[in-house]
Amino acid sequence: LSAYRDQHFGGSMDNQERKLKEASTLYIGNLSFFTTEEQIYEVFSKCGSIKRVVMGLDKIKRTPCGFCFVEYYDREEAANCMRYVSGTRLDDRIIRTDWDVGFKEGRQY
């Protein structure tokens, strides 16, 4: 696990740690505002089958704002993504991936 923690997580630290160790969702950061869901699918499905992609949106304008969540079917697929896609380029930007406890409605803003 990396140092990143969601500060809005509404539970105890232990609970968050436990969930992170079982998670198969990743938080993806440093995306270009123009990067599309299609591109995300293309790059991230190189590590396994994707269950869901949720684009991060600007609270007010409802436009992509540089992050997203990618959920895989298996944790091992997400682990491969941490190993081999984190730190590579998409739309010429170095993307960063981190473990996430799993997407909940509202977190895309």
Binding site: A3, Y4, R5, D6, Q7, H8, M13, G29, G56, C65, G66, F67
Partner: peptide, 14 residues
Amino acid sequence: MSGSRRRKYRDDDE
């Protein structure tokens, strides 16, 4: 997404 979400552990872990 603000920088604060990426802060490291606080003192209770220490």
